[in-house]
Design a protein around this nucleic acid. Structure first.
Lengths: 219, 219
DNA sequence: CATAGGTGTGACCGTTCGGTAACAAATGGC
DNA sequence: GCCATTTGTTACCGAACGGTCACACCTATG
């Protein structure tokens, strides 16, 4: 398939510098971070960049300045590692929710506005879509262990957003929440297929319009 | 990766029946369809079901009741075959546009309503998202030949929808078109991650609401 | 009937992949 | 210093993959 293969197996040139020779991805800054954490962080990054099927465990281990054996001692299989990265990603989403909550306590409208802003900013910065939705697209095998993680995250995300919409006092909070979710997922996948100049560029405006239509003027 | 491997190499039992032994996917009904067409049709189906990276050329050839050599005589590489399937898929989209045009000639509002209905129906039936957007998610390698096909399709689709919106006489037709595209892409990816009961279920309602907000009452 | 072009067959190549075995080196708590 | 746990290293396995070769077949056309 194509030329681009990321998995450079056995790059061990020379027996001199055993130092981790600056493997592109600088995620865990090689400081005193446990190998397990380095692996998870690096895997998150590489799965995003190359897709889950597009990167091998060898390459992940090497980029994490460790080796395959250590990886397999922490995660019984690549699938396990995939699940763990999805869990970590979903925890990051939890952190964003918590941050919004603390910034605008007891102000559902402001929180909803902040949610749109935060996701819009995220869309500008990162060229890759929702890792979890991407995983769902990529992993078609039914009974893949990741599906449980994906489903769980999506249900929680939907519940949180629906609750937030309900707290704004709008009628049909479920419809509002689902509409916003469709816009978000659409923007993320569209950004991958068409870039920032594509339909994704109107994500924020579309959200504001939707909020207005539901009687929620942005703060 | 997991257990599920679709590529059953060498299933050639016995030297008796050289007949095409009913290979699950019934796409090209084994009638007098040229091998090339059978391959494309089957590849479309299998890429959708298993993902582009999730199915091998061996399995495609076998499911198309032919063999790998014939496949490679028509398509120089798997990447070529991928591009061809994306082209065929985009032609199917063209056919839908033409159908809508003939059903509601010179009635942009009705055409837009029919577009929403058609895509909504499509969403109910097919459990897989937009093949082209899925390909964009799956094929991260820059300079993959499929990216040209994807980009071309997305630009054309956006142009057509924007034109249609403009013909309805609404103000900000670009924003309306992009919003609808985000809802569509979002619904398709959400359907894969969360099923029909997820946010995708409100796709049609969200589109109607959006059309109303832009002053386009549905016919 | 002969010939040519598309097709089928099966073996094969080189590579990558996920995963394991065996053993050496470091690390840290007692 | 001792010992147990954690890492690193290297080689290896079996399978699947994309892709090719040589050769037999079959069918339509002249």
């Amino acid at each position: 398939m194509s030329i681009a293969v990321v998995n450079k197996n056995a790059k061990r040139g020379s027996t001199v510098k055993p130092e981790a020779e600056s493997t592109s991805v600088p995620s865990p800054s090689s400081a005193k971070v446990a190998p397990r954490d380095r692996i998870v962080t690096t895997a998150c990054e590489l799965f995003r960049q190359h897709g889950i099927r597009g990167i091998g465990v060898d390459a992940i281990a090497e980029a994490a300045s460790t080796n395959k054996m250590t990886l397999y001692r922490h995660f019984g299989s690549k699938d396990d590692l995939v699940c763990e990265t999805l869990r970590v990603t979903s925890e990051k989403s939890d952190a964003m929710w918590a941050d919004i909550e603390t910034r605008f306590p007891d102000d559902a409208r402001a929180q909803l506005g902040a949610w749109v802003t935060a996701l819009s900013d995220c869309l500008q910065r990162e060229s890759f879509g929702c890792d979890i939705a991407n995983a769902a697209v990529e992993l078609k095998e039914a009974n893949h262990p990741a599906h449980a993680v994906i489903e769980n995250f999506k249900i929680l995300q939907r519940g949180k957003l629906t609750g937030l919409c309900r707290r704004t006092g709008t009628k049909e909070p479920e419809t509002l929440a689902d509409t916003l979710l469709l816009l978000l997922e659409g923007a993320r996948v569209s950004r991958q297929a068409s870039g920032l100049e594509g339909p994704a560029q109107c994500f924020q405006r579309a959200c504001r319009n939707t909020l207005n239509a539901f009687g929620i003027g942005t703060a």
